[in-house]
Design a protein around this nucleic acid. Sequence first.
DNA 1: TCATTTAGTTTACCCCCTAAACTTTATTTT
DNA 2: AAAATAAAGTTTAGGGGGTAAACTAAATGA
Lengths: 146, 146
Amino acid sequence: MSDRLQEAIRLFTDVMVYGQNEVFRKVENELHKELSMEQIKMLNWLERYGPLTSKELTELQGGHKSATSSRLKKLVDKEYVKVVQKEDDRRVKHVEFTEKGASAYKEAKEQVNEYLSSVLEGIENEEIDQFIYIFSKVKELLKKQN
Amino acid sequence: MSDRLQEAIRLFTDVMVYGQNEVFRKVENELHKELSMEQIKMLNWLERYGPLTSKELTELQGGHKSATSSRLKKLVDKEYVKVVQKEDDRRVKHVEFTEKGASAYKEAKEQVNEYLSSVLEGIENEEIDQFIYIFSKVKELLKKQN
DNA sequence: TCATTTAGTTTACCCCCTAAACTTTATTTT
DNA sequence: AAAATAAAGTTTAGGGGGTAAACTAAATGA
């Protein structure tokens, strides 16, 4: 394997590690303490495609259905979402935002965006197109793994 | 804020999320079940700079010292590392690999590398330099957050 | 009506984390 | 020399995450 691919792997790993340390930790400890990162991700799917069932949330977010169930329970307990049974199939439950949840999520999203803006503003104007191109490519490669 | 910076933020978030879902989950569930991702990271620091004290490991890996303590205890229990008290300051303990740990870590590292190779091989030869440049830049921006 | 399947929950067990409080040891101050 | 303070690391309490198997309730199919 080429040395440059090796270098690319090391950089990818470093960005993932630093990104997780800096961004996830910053979000969970300082910017927004009401919601964990995984909860924010779940609410993001809900905002984009909601209302959604447990099964759909599991498929979108990944992981085991019991993780989805447990996470949902916490969001219900926090009154950020509500669960409504489907009328013609009472096994199926749709999850939707409460007003409190929509508000909390909006605030969290804004805080994450602000923070990431301050980080990525270090990208020079002429580098942004390169950034967008390379990150789009990496995203597709990661999505292709399934 | 420019639309392109917004797009960059969205892509960065997506890569972080997909990367964590695909890579971390793949590593922890399929490639290597003996070590969690955080344990692998800790052993990586140990390999690069070891032997190290608890305090030094906390500084390198980030997080609270109690997280380091707990993680170390698990690695000790698995006989992957051993802890030796400093002779002239018995509060201080140095952590080093056992043979078993060095072997397990080497295997985990190889598996992670192989997997990431298969993902990033989708990067075209002429894109690698761009990738390296952009990811180096992002890494420095993230490191600068402290 | 009974067997099978599906959607979601619970249980057991693993991992992660922070912060405060604690123990042991070293250093500094009195 | 003794007391106070500081440092290194551990423990405790409480929060989060996860998987997989087993379970419950409901729907579907034979």
